[in-house]
Design a binder for these strands. Structure first.
Lengths: 212, 212
DNA sequence: TAGATTGTTAATCGATTAACAATC
DNA sequence: TAGATTGTTAATCGATTAACAATC
């Protein structure tokens, strides 16, 4: 593991978009230009070329890129063939929704267990997966070598849950609670900041909505 | 409405974080410095001062800002006292979760109705709100002056739903489907790009997770 | 060939951070 | 007062976009 990864987070976040778009093309489309990808996804064409160059073999002038190769290369880079297992804490509405969402399999994510501290839901099954008391998280994670934790508990409980996840060996946390989490070095957090998005939408309305 | 809004989207997205943090402080804390806010939220202190300066009256050297004023000013700027009504399309798992999430009220959002095209769910109630056939969206939106639409349908159906929303007079779209949506000028889209976040988490694991 | 398209280098843009004077 | 803290101006940084030569 000698290479520092050269791909920026921005590029990384765009890769699934390319992947989905390319997958959505009819089978007859064998080649595609960065220009047309950019037009479709409303990105700059140079940006698309730079992004693709980082994970794929490159295109041919006048012809573009081979769609199939791009799909393979992006999918391999994102390791969509490899399944990461995850645990989820907080079997409330959002937790339930994520447990039930079948789409993640396509992107190499499998949420195997949910944890909660509510006796009412412990022992039940959501989409065929068990809900367990949070005390068992550590043993489950080490037994199954699980490195991804999803936090869908209320904001006030999120840091506690985060701490338990870190102790359980979780290295990547997907945080749906509206708080910034403190984690030690080596543990990454991605905040799904719904309230921030809402602020952007709301301002647009309040301003009369003249701009794009 | 003469003023172009001077606040960047980045700042705007941070405001709810400040708001929540300030609200979480014990009542005894009357004043707070940008330095300590920054430390707590892991931001740069100058950035915090600049953000606050855009929506509030400013602080005093050595003392900091008055917590209560900050809360009022940010809340007023974000219009958390004002309720924006929204409709939601796609009463699947994610849609269900959002309909049931009680936290949005705090941020001035009320999802009043869900729409679906599945006869099995039309006519049912989710969290006390009706699920209606999508054909009725236009009349509901105009009758209730609803400007926010939430899309939680499968990716393949998202653009169609988006078009209907635009026709129904929706001006702000919160998109949970994994596609870029085409909208006319004047309609804003916020993508909640779960798959992009997942890519970031996943890469961290695949790289051995040495960095932050 | 002609020209559409790639890939690279340079310029631009916006956001973040550093430096520092003002002030309570 | 001394010094913690604000607020502003300048520097830095990273990402996006423009320009353009290379090429199939």
């Amino acid at each position: 593991m000698s290479n520092a990864n050269p791909i920026s987070t921005q590029t990384l976040r765009r890769l699934p978009t390319y992947y989905d778009y390319l997958k959505s093309l009819p089978a007859e489309v064998k080649n595609i230009s960065a220009t047309s990808i950019a037009r479709e996804l409303r990105l700059n064409d140079v940006q698309v070329r730079k992004d693709l160059a980082l994970v794929s073999g490159g295109g041919k002038p006048k012809v573009g890129y081979v769609v199939e190769h791009l799909i393979d290369d992006i999918g391999r880079y994102l390791r969509y063939d490899y399944v990461d297992r995850a645990v989820l804490a907080g079997a409330g509405n959002m937790g339930h929704a994520l447990m039930c969402y079948e789409g993640f399999a396509r992107y190499g994510l499998d949420i195997v267990t949910a944890f909660d501290n509510n006796a009412g839901v412990i022992g039940t099954y959501i989409n065929g997966k068990r809900v367990l008391p949070i005390e068992e998280m550590g043993s489950i994670c080490s037994k199954q070598d699980i490195k991804i934790g999803i936090i869908t508990v209320p904001a006030a409980a999120a840091q506690d849950v985060c701490n338990i996840m870190v102790q359980s060996g979780i290295k990547a946390i997907w945080n749906f609670a509206a708080v910034k989490l403190n984690t030690p070095k080596g543990v990454i957090v991605q905040n799904e900041d719904l309230v921030a998005s809402l602020a952007v939408l709301s301002r647009h309305l309040k301003q009369g909505g003249d701009e794009a």
